[in-house]
Write a protein that binds this DNA or RNA. Structure first.
Lengths: 142, 142
DNA sequence: ATAGTTTACTTGTATATACAAACAAACTCC
DNA sequence: GGAGTTTGTTTGTATATACAAGTAAACTAT
């Protein structure tokens, strides 16, 4: 069944979640080559771009709770993709050598995802939607 | 940090999920009076509207996997809000008397949610976004 | 009629996520 | 400089969700 045919397609809760789940699947496919979930992949990319970032900063940019970020980092640490060092109350997260080597593949995955949804939805269409969703998310201060 | 200020606010994956989480929280608040998660509440509403619906039908309308629907129904059954009967391979889900009595409060919660986001986002604004998201979700056939 | 297939649902297991609480470091104010 | 507070991070625990595999009923074709 199409989302627009559901009984609840006129409800924000329902539609937002339905879309999120579909996008999640789409992203999952793109990141399969590196065997990372989209969240892990984005986190890793951020650490690669800004070696030494702190979990709090990651949480802000990824808009995830601090505890979730800790869990994501834990997993990446297990897989030897990031290294955590603590200094006082602060924690710094660095990419491992292995992660740095992965960078080109990671970027390829990211591009694949972008191209995939741009093709499916149309470049302008998707850009507009994204901007709109961002603005709407801003208005919801939970 | 606002969603639109994040490093990743231009990415579909990120933005969709950020929005979904915020909407989830908003919905959670609205359904607090009946101590149900939004998913459970929507499922219950659907069962109240169509007593005897089957899990497969629910899964279609709620766009959730069959296993997830089973789990949701299980919890509602524990709370004596729905009753499951099986006939052959089919399962029928009926609202309990307690659930029927709850209907007015459920509707109140639903209205609260609608009014809440309509106020925050603007009626037209949110309607447009919802329609747009539905259509986009349709295009993604995962 | 019976073997194979499809359909409807449930279970086992895994995951991302969050809240609340814990903890430790850093800051503030008297 | 020591008490109280704030900040940054991690743990304990809970939840919604899904996939894969299992089960059982219904259908189909020979």
């Amino acid at each position: 069944m199409k989302t627009s045919e559901s009984k609840y397609c006129k409800c924000l809760y329902f539609t937002t979640n339905a879309l999120a789940r579909k996008v999640e699947k789409l992203a999952l496919e793109s990141w399969k080559p590196v065997d990372l979930s989209p969240s892990h992949a984005y986190l890793l990319l951020m650490v690669l771009e800004e070696p030494g970032t702190q979990p709090s900063c990651i949480a802000n940019h990824l808009q995830l709770s601090p505890s979730t970020v800790t869990r994501l980092i834990e997993k990446l640490e297990e897989r030897k993709l990031v290294i955590r060092t603590t200094e006082g109350k602060q924690t710094n997260v660095y990419p491992s050598a292995a992660a740095k080597e992965m960078l080109p593949i990671l970027k390829k995955c990211l591009n694949h995802f972008f191209n995939n949804y741009s093709t499916i939805l149309g470049k302008e269409e998707s850009d507009k939607l994204i901007t709109n969703m961002s603005l709407v998310a801003d208005k919801i201060s939970v």
